[in-house]
Design a protein around this nucleic acid. Structure first.
Lengths: 163, 163
DNA sequence: TATTGTTATACTCTATAACTATA
DNA sequence: TATAGTTATAGAGTATAACAATA
């Protein structure tokens, strides 16, 4: 393997000398670069795993909202419905999530965690949060909170204080 | 088309009632959701275009750093070398960027904008920055600056004040 | 008619590894 | 031996549209 062996900005010394000019004030671009950096670090720490982060995230969200409609969950997590179908099916096949068609609206599908799903969360949840924080360890706690507040606002979610 | 017709959090009223619990304190997840939201809004505003955002970003970066090595640029923008090759070639074929092999290290390729490339920047640059800002119009100017500062730090770039 | 979810598929993006040329 | 870039391809992620069932 050649090419792209280095974690870029982490090691390479002269990298910060590359200016992007006005481009550095593009919050969209910076948001993307930051997200890629954070995920790169997270995956490096997380390593191989039997459950994907996207799947685990859905599992956690279901556990937080037992009985949530599948489509609503997809919208919140910005996952397309068509892709959510496959993702949820995977979780169902592994016995982590149960699907249920409610009587009052039989078009819909509501989700809830199984006991095994809850066990999986107990098992992997702590690790995930720890590594998530570690991937962003360059931020102080205050900056971390700032980031949460800003990203919530961008996503159109209410401030934490108001909930 | 069915499924996912709504821009999620933008229209749907009851969406903010879905809590994600501890998951909402995952800066990694929030960073991703925010980035997706911002890009969704940006693309909705930007519409169809003859040049892709990724291509335009590279063009801008080259114009800011004439003579930059292709691999360095790839690292900065978090694009894999193999993918950068194709991207730069596209820009070259359109006559926007010129590739040059320097005498002192003939393994490398350095990039510079053509006159046509500079024209393209002049033509699309203003629009891009305006829409980029508009996609994040839910933030105040102060919050926007905060976001730039935080994302720079995450990316491992020096604070703007120090440059 | 509109909505919820599914299916199939196309498309784009990203990742991986082998390769050439140069240092 | 190491580095810069290329090529081909695999793989993941995402998007699109037609569809069935229900409201």
């Amino acid at each position: 393997m050649a090419g792209a062996r280095k974690p870029a900005a982490l090691e390479e010394p002269g990298l910060e000398q590359v200016g992007l000019g006005a481009l550095e004030h593009s919050a969209g671009l910076m948001l993307r670069i930051a997200q890629l950096t954070a995920f790169e670090r997270f995956f490096a720490l997380f390593g191989e795993s039997e459950i994907k982060i996207s799947e685990f995230t859905v599992l956690m969200a279901v556990a937080e909202n037992p009985g949530i409609r599948q489509g609503v969950l997809a919208d919140v997590l910005k996952i397309k419905w068509s892709n959510m179908t496959k993702l949820v099916r995977t979780l169902e096949e592994r016995g982590l999530v149960a699907r249920h068609v409610p009587r009052h609206d039989r078009r819909s599908v509501v989700l809830s965690p199984t006991d095994e799903g809850r066990r999986q969360i107990e098992k992997s949840g702590e690790k995930m949060y720890r590594l998530d924080r570690e991937a962003l360890s360059m931020l102080t706690d205050a900056e971390h909170d700032q980031l949460i507040a800003l990203t919530r606002k961008i996503a159109g979610w209410p401030p934490i204080s108001e909930r």
